[in-house]
Structure formats: C-alpha cells, structure tokens
Design a protein around this nucleic acid. Structure first.
Ligand code: ZN
Ligand code: ZN
Ligand code: ZN
Ligand code: ZN
Lengths: 164, 164
DNA sequence: GGGGGTATGTTATAAAATAACAATAGGGGG
DNA sequence: CCCCCTATTGTTATTTTATAACATACCCCC
C-alpha cells in the first residue's frame, strides 16, 4: 500500500491497536489539560475510532441507541463539540460528518482526503501548505484564522476499480 | 472585467458594474456552451451577485418569494445546481451557502476567504496552491479530484474593529 | 450537607436538502 | 401546424442535520 510515514489510514494496519493507542493518548491529554473525558465523550470518540470513515452525528446517535443508551441529538452534538474543540476529532465540512483525529498528539492543522468510492477518510498534516495558504491570505489583506482543506478523489485501493 | 489584482471583493468597487459584467459574461458563456440560462437561473445568479456575501438556499428562496414568484426549495436548489456545475457559482461548504463566481471567465479552482465578522466572502484563484495540494495527495497515493479550500478570518475592513 | 459549576437528559423546533411526481414549455420532424 | 421528446419548472411531502430551551444529575469544594 502506500507507506508508513506520512499517513497510515489508507494502509493496512492493526486497527484495534491504533484505536487503543488513540484512546490512551486522549485520556492522557485530558488528564494533562484538566479536561474531562467523561464516559459519554469517550464512547463517542471510540465510535469514531472504530472506522476510518467519517460518521454523521445521527450515525453515532444510532450506535449509542443500539447499545441501549438512551440518547438524543444534543447529547451527541455536545460530545462532538468537546472532541472537536479539544482536537480529538475533526469536522468534515463537505460531508457534514466527523472523524477522529489521526494526529492528536500534536497541535496541527489537518487536510483531509476523502475517497468518493469507499468513503474512507485520511487525515494528513497540512504543514507547509497551511503556511502557504496563510501567506496567500495575508497578501490579500486577509487575516486568516482557520483553514479548511478537504480533497475528494480516489484512495489507493479504489483507483483500479471501476468505481465499485 | 475584474482587474489584474488578484481579488477585488474586499476592495471598493462599482458593484452594479461588476454585477452587470458578470451577467453579460454568463449569458455569453451559456450561448457559447449551448446552456440555457433561463429566467429562473438568471434571477438566482443576479441575487447571488447582489452582494459579496454567501447566501443560503433559503435566503434566495425568501427573495424570490418577496418578488412574488411562487417558489419552493427544489426550484432554488436546481437553479443552484445548474450555476455551480457550470462554474457560475460556488458552494461554500463551511457555510452551507452559495456565492457567485468572481472569475467565471476562466476555468479555475477557487479558494475562499470568509470574514467571520462582516460575513463577506472573497474568492481568490487557488493556482499553485491547488497544484501543491494535488502533489501532496499524489505523494500519499491518493488521486485527487476536487479540492475545497476555505479560510475563515478577518477581512481588511474588520481587522481594526473590536469585531463589531 | 449545601452551593455552584459542569455535564447529561428531554422535548420541541429550526435549518438545509432531497424524493417523487405533475404540469409545462420548447424545439425538431413529420 | 401538430406530435413527440426532452428539459425545465411547479408542488407536496419527507429526510437529514443542527440547535434552543429547560430539567435533572453529578462533582468538587467548602
Ligand atoms: Zn487531526
Ligand atoms: Zn476508496
Ligand atoms: Zn470562481
Ligand atoms: Zn469583514
């Protein structure tokens, strides 16, 4: 598949392991920052970590209900607000959906690659592209604050296929 | 036409003039491409061109109704589909809203600057940044098709203010 | 054990988008 | 001119996404 360095989502990997690692990281980060990763918030994060697809708030809601938790939209949206504002998840604007952050260990600006065929979502750090975008904005007199970069296309596995 | 400075939306300009120019351009482009810029579609484009803010579909709907046209959501969405797929308007994913294209004369990928204070929206060509994004995606094994770049921040006029 | 802040639970509603089908308008061939 | 075909518009109903408003429960500190 691709390679292990920049981005592991489109690669084969031990997904249970990556989920557990992410949860451990989130718990540690919350302890360090004095944030409360309550059971509700933790469960929503786990659900996001179960796949590398983006989930809509109502998909998450349905899972919570399937697990027997009574749940209503505001509960999910509040958990997602927490996760997004503290960097444990991201919102995908094109999809009205959410995905767990793949690089929560460091502060970063994300760029998303969204497969139009299998709907997997990969997050890569924006890095220098973010700086370039800020520079372009500055040249136009605009004080940039938060950039969104989301690219639709085909993931490695879906490129051969006739689109499935 | 516009001007050679990259972006005139955050500058003072004769807005009636720029609207008329854009409408003329759209009519010519439709004639050339054998597309039908029907009265409905033209009116929606004019409404988008009346300001440099992004309008939600239901804002447009309200205007059409205020003008006496009976109108329902599908009508507006269909007109917007036409305008967006033929390059006369763009959808702003972060805002669930639409804006007339500021550079309809040439095929381009847009980048949007969205003022969080006055809600004006400026479109700049993505140009080399688009190529860089594609290159990054390619390096990750991803076949990029359509990139979305939308930057929130403060426009020149709103930077001094206490946010108003 | 009380008080204040934070989080969750619940009801209702708003906002954005689409499905499905009916009616109409235009345009070319007979 | 009339018919047929297609594209467009009109209409009704519904789905999907998100938030407002308020009640209850929890937790830490005193
Ligand atoms: Zn991330
Ligand atoms: Zn794929
Ligand atoms: Zn444009
Ligand atoms: Zn502004």
């Amino acid at each position: 598949m691709a390679q292990e360095i920049p981005n592991n989502i489109f690669c084969q990997h031990d997904h249970r392991g990556c989920r557990a690692t992410a949860m451990r990281g989130a718990r540690a980060a919350c302890r360090a920052a004095n944030l409360r990763l309550t059971p509700m918030r933790a469960r929503v994060l786990e659900i996001l970590l179960e796949s590398h697809k983006a989930l809509g708030a109502y998909d998450i809601l349905a899972r919570l209900r399937a697990e027997g938790r009574s749940s209503q939209p505001p509960i999910v949206y509040r958990a997602l607000d927490f996760l997004v504002s503290n960097g444990f998840a991201h919102r995908l604007e094109r999809l009205n959906a959410f995905a767990a952050c793949a690089h929560a260990e460091d502060r970063h600006q994300p760029m998303f690659l969204i497969c139009e065929s299998c709907h997997q979502v990969a997050e890569a750090p924006l890095d220098r592209l973010g700086q370039d975008i800020f520079a372009r904005a500055t040249k136009l007199g605009f004080q940039a604050r938060s950039p969104v970069v989301e690219v639709s296309g085909l993931c490695p596995a879906c490129q051969g296929d006739g689109e499935q």
